[in-house]
Amino acid sequence: MSTRLPTFGDMKAQELKGLLLDKRLLGGGVLFAALALYPGLTMNAYHTRLLAWIMCFAIAALGFNIVLGYTGLLSFGHAAFFGTGMYTVVIAMESAGITDLIVLLVLAMLAAGVVGAVIGALSVKTHEIYFALLTLALAQLLYVLAARDVGGLTRGTDGIGLSRPDFLGIPISEAPAHIYLMGFYYHVILVCLFATIAVLWLVLRSPFGLTLKMIRENETRAEMSGVPILRYRLYSMVLSAMIVGLAGALYAVVVGHVTPEYLDWTMSGEIVFMALLGGIGTFLGPIIGASGFIILQEVALGVTTYWHFTMGLVLFVVVLTLREKGIWGGAKALVDDLNERRDDS
């Protein structure tokens, strides 16, 4: 026999080779390694803290974009999920005495998921600005209840301080604060970020993700093809809420103090801002947006106390010029454009 049939083993090897050579995966691996080694190599506590902060909000913006970018609904109430994540951690540690980080993160995701299911169930029937205003009203309701300490869980506007959680029974919380962050907690956030990216990459390319896109592009057609639209919107709200809740839970330990401010509508506005800045029509845009937002804020704060003005101006210009493309989509379009011109000449 001269022709050799490709065997199963060969296929596997080839697929693996293709996978390894995939630019995106390779880039992701290099970035992960670089980020993981950064605190140890530089020993720069300020940068580590800033990166931890950026990564928390990158997770939040990615989670938020499931609803805006993929399902096409503008939520102005995602602070509810972020704040629920934060409060779950602090209340579970204080009242229930749970100190294991993994348990706390899972609890926070579940709690945010429940809040997401409730807000989602009430709001998925509405459209466009009504959806935005309804999510705003419901989240603000939660904020008011937390700020006025209704139910006696939140201690009102003073907020609650937070101690450091342990990990798998190891009493790591006894380490000094900067070692805890640089040697341990930073890496937990990093792993969570890359896990979120991987999960979303798979979910949004699954039939579920494609159905969400179909609903966004043409609701009537989706409905005619038998897609239960409201149920899919609800699923996307719950998934989004869980990821944003995870981000809030991670962030709670970074700041060490939870206040109702994190449930307020300006917090929702910041999450929307980050996703939009990076580009809601792109997969990686929200990460770029969160980094851009926080770096911009740090730079602007260093130069002037009037950083709100700078941020407002940037938001205004991005909305008017780049729209759903954001910085990331805009840059991609620019590169494509340049490539085309080079090919032409």
Binding site: F273, G312, L313, L320
Partner: peptide
């Protein structure tokens, strides 16, 4: 969103 920027 743009007028949220104006508020800021």
């Amino acid at each position: 969103l743009a007028t949220f920027g104006v508020i800021l």
